[in-house]
Design a protein around this nucleic acid. Structure first.
Lengths: 333, 333
DNA sequence: AACATAAATGAAAGCGCTTTCATTATCTAA
DNA sequence: TTAGATAATGAAAGCGCTTTCATTTATGTT
């Protein structure tokens, strides 16, 4: 592997000049530039990124942390983030935190030990204090799906309250009034916001929130099954779930109980995951633009940390949309 | 950030000794070790991995290339590979090749430019010649789902022929004799092997392969839909698809045509993707242990490249299993 | 033409480690 | 006790770059 020395030799210039033509920021005369470029060409020279990192104190690595690598939810986002970063010559180091505080901290420490220039974090468990402390160590990071007032400029969030509102509103508009709700884990901020939106939609329609029509789920398919089983003693014609997995579980249980879908029960999910198009009936759900949020976070990193594409417009708040499919039906009676 | 100098100073030993206690391979007296370790502790010393890489010519990076980052198929594998590598202190750099020759080459070049110590590749398009040439540049790599005779030791493959056989056999055993088949793209090796297995199962049962019951699909949901639409003029009671996506598409079309599933038509998929448990009816399919193969590739890298866990047993050929769910039914008539 | 100023270049230090090789301390056996 | 062997240690070079600072070369001005 040719080094910068050999290039400098062949081109008849100094190391410094070769380095300068690589890092286009400093002026080099056309004459030297041409000599250097042709020498590089001739030697098939490829800069050693490790040496560059050591000398420049820049690794060109961006650490990415998501809850789960497996599962379709994050993979689309990862795909976009990776390609956007790669486009800019940055390397993504991807890690999972598994919604566990210790594991999330471990993962972040790991990313730091990789000497990442910046981090893109989708965290569930780690405390705001920890993140603010991280900020002190002055390693820049973007937060996805989590808001900290003090550093709002690097937070990219979905309006989960509005999403919860839309989900419930969608069945209200179809004439439903007996509406059950399966919420997500209480420690998840987004779950609580979605529930809040649900309540707003109810109250706006003059429907009282009925705790007996509310089940606290766990965001998993099981939770949806258990939710339906628990609620099934009560009368309701629509069921809104705080995410798609639970909606799927609820569908399963509903059918077990002999219900026709969507005739006997309309079901709404949240997230618009890939499989929402595969369920039967296909699932009406609230679109969660997680990929767009990831992409925005990557753009932010490129802009703020690397000064690339500085004209890009940064949007911090994303608005959800409802996606109608076959799992809901007009309620007439 | 403390450096090795400060540690050496505080401990009253030389750089070399500190370096030795970090890289446990060389003997250091207990006295020095203790001094060094407590100095590290005191300073909160963390080695700079970039400097280590430059000096040792080892980056501790493993490049991972898959067809798609998005989509559930690879994400589970990535999750396992990442955590296995991280466990061993190696960083995974993850990239997608999008089943396109140019993009795959780009991705590989990118991984090389990251100075990865080894690669784990799931490729679709790149030629064997290119890979053999890569081998010359002596960067070690493992191949997933692709076999090259000359370097079979680093190839980790599924017995796709056997899988295709099992899929078709499963419906034959249930009494079906009119069996349609939707195959994958011809340029994909695995697709062709699965088709071959299908034919073997047929001939073993004394059923002639009928080209009019064969549709050449594209591995996507569309392909499944188009496949069923095309085949629907003919009589068949079972439909075997070369992957789960196409099975899903076929289900969709079959229902559009007014068929009851599985009563009127039994459907079998291939891969056992996550969503196979979400379809309605849930999908009988052939399990593709892609995650186990990835994990084995990671183990191989750890063993061959880093001499870690050298006692691990390496298996190159994986055997598929059929997973029975609700999409198939006994054929009686 | 002579000078002031700006632009381009090169020498060399340094990034934080690993590793070789020479040196010193420690141990063994007679 | 001491020679000889072995184990532990340190000095220093080097990994391939970037970057500062001093120097040289080009450009503009009168």
């Amino acid at each position: 592997m040719a080094t910068i020395y050999e290039v400098a030799n062949l081109a008849g210039v100094s190391l410094a000049t070769v380095s300068r033509v690589m890092n286009r920021n400093v002026k080099v005369s056309d004459k030297s530039r041409i000599k250097v470029e042709s020498a590089m060409e001739q030697l098939g020279y490829k800069p050693n990124s490790i040496a560059q990192s050591l000398a420049s104190n820049r690794t060109n690595r961006v650490g990415v942390l998501v809850s789960e690598l497996s599962g379709p939810f994050f993979s689309h986002m990862l795909a976009i983030v990776e390609s956007e970063l790669r486009e800019a010559g940055k390397h993504a180091i991807i890690t999972a935190g598994h919604s566990d505080e210790e594991k999330e901290k471990d993962a972040i420490e790991f990313l730091l030990s990789c000497r990442c220039d910046a981090l893109i974090l989708h965290i569930d468990a780690v405390s705001d204090e920890y993140l603010l402390e991280l900020r002190q160590r002055d390693i820049p990071f973007a937060l996805i799906n989590h808001q900290i007032e003090a550093i709002a400029d690097c937070c990219f969030i979905l309006d989960n309250e509005q999403g919860g509102y839309l989900a419930t509103q969608s069945v209200i508009k179809l004439g439903h009034t007996k509406i059950a709700y399966i919420s997500g884990p209480e420690f998840k901020e987004d779950a609580m916001m979605r529930l809040k939106g649900h309540k707003r939609a109810l109250s706006e329609a003059g429907i009282a929130f009925d705790e007996t029509l509310h089940y606290r789920g766990n965001y998993n398919e099981d939770g949806g099954k258990a939710g339906f089983d628990n609620l099934s003693d009560h009368r309701f014609t629509a069921l809104v779930c705080a995410n798609d997995e639970m909606a799927t579980g609820a569908m399963y249980s509903a059918r077990k109980h002999g219900l026709q879908l969507p005739g006997d029960l309309s079901i709404v999910g949240f997230d618009d995951q890939v499989f929402a198009r595969y369920t039967y009936p296909t699932l009406t759900t609230v679109n969660n633009p997680i990929a767009a949020m990831g992409s925005m976070a990557a753009t932010w990193v490129l802009k703020e940390v690397y000064n690339i594409n500085t004209s890009a417009e940064i949007v911090n708040l994303f608005t959800p949309k409802i996606v109608f499919r076959d799992s809901v039906e007009t309620h007439t009676s």
